[in-house]
Design a protein around this nucleic acid. Structure first.
Length: 277
DNA sequence: GCCCAGGTATAAA
DNA sequence: TTTATACATGGG
């Protein structure tokens, strides 16, 4: 991997197995916006970015090389060998191999844990366009406090609001869940960084102490927010896909990279709905 | 109007 | 432990 400043921005070369649309539009994050040009605009950890990719490499606009090294390199998970992982997963099952080959540029982002927790609380019994809308309104609601509508509010900021303060979000009953999550995180009752290092059963149990966090949301937070790649979110789509793809298996064990396998299968099944009836 | 959306809390069997 | 239902919004 190599970096150089160009007139268009910071150009990073030597990146393989990475696709912006496959990574940013596969249901793991909700705050990246696709521009007309095909570039994506978004932010994380207080930094904004416009990013695009072509045959020359990955182009970061509005980022210094220090930001790339200290943040975006890790955010986009560019140091993990996805080619190797995909190969290992492909050896487990031919259909998994096909699903992986369909979107080989998917990577699991290193998103902000609290934002991810809130995002997947909002995601329950909800559709992606509306999830995005609620999160956008949440960032706007706290714009004055955070200093930018690009930033996600902290747990402390959210924790000192009341449910009626969140009415502008139009999040329905999920507003109360968001407050409970914020209060537990801000109060130290839930320590996301500690959960990140906990054995999976304990990590799941900790997260599920938050109101509105059940097995599915907990698994999503572990995978997408805490980068526990062995986590395996199981929703109705995945259940159907698994029943179709692996009818003989009752218990599935894809090993330490199950979450990546899940993401390949989820993406594949969403874009080939006719195969999963 | 009706159905559904990357579910969960709650009560009842 | 498993199953049924309500839950608020809004887009198709």
């Amino acid at each position: 991997m190599n970096c150089q400043q160009t007139p268009g921005g910071l150009l990073v070369t030597g990146i393989t197995d990475f696709s912006l649309p496959e990574t940013l539009d596969c249901g793991q994050c909700f705050r990246w916006q696709r521009l007309e040009s095909g570039a994506y605009r978004g932010s994380a950890y207080g930094k904004s970015l416009t990013v695009s990719m072509d045959e020359k490499g990955l182009l970061l606009q509005g980022a210094a090389e220090e930001d790339f090294q200290a943040l975006w390199r890790s955010y986009f998970d560019l140091d993990l060998d996805y080619n190797k992982i995909r190969g290992a997963l492909a050896n487990k099952d031919p259909i998994l191999k096909e699903a992986a080959a369909f979107a080989p540029g998917i990577r699991i982002l290193n998103q902000e844990p609290f934002e991810t927790l809130c995002s997947f609380i909002i995601s329950q019994n909800n559709n992606i366009p509306r999830i995005k809308g609620i999160i956008e309104r949440l960032c706007l609601l706290f714009e004055r406090e955070t200093g930018s509508a690009d930033r996600f509010p902290t747990a402390e900021m959210l924790a000192c609001r009341r449910e009626e303060d969140l009415a502008p979000l139009r999040a329905g009953w999920r507003a109360a869940y968001l407050l409970d999550a914020a209060q537990k995180v801000a109060g130290g009752e839930i320590d996301l960084e500690r959960i990140k290092a906990l054995p999976m059963p304990e990590a799941r149990a900790e997260l599920m102490r938050i109101k509105g966090v059940g097995p599915k949301v907990a698994e999503c937070v572990l995978l997408y927010g805490l980068h526990r790649l062995e986590a395996f979110p199981m929703d109705v789509w995945m259940k159907r896909a698994m029943a179709t793809l692996f009818p003989e298996k009752s218990v599935l064990d894809f090993g330490p990279y199950a979450g990546i396998a899940q993401q390949y299968i989820f993406h594949y099944s969403r874009l080939h709905p006719e195969l999963f009836r």
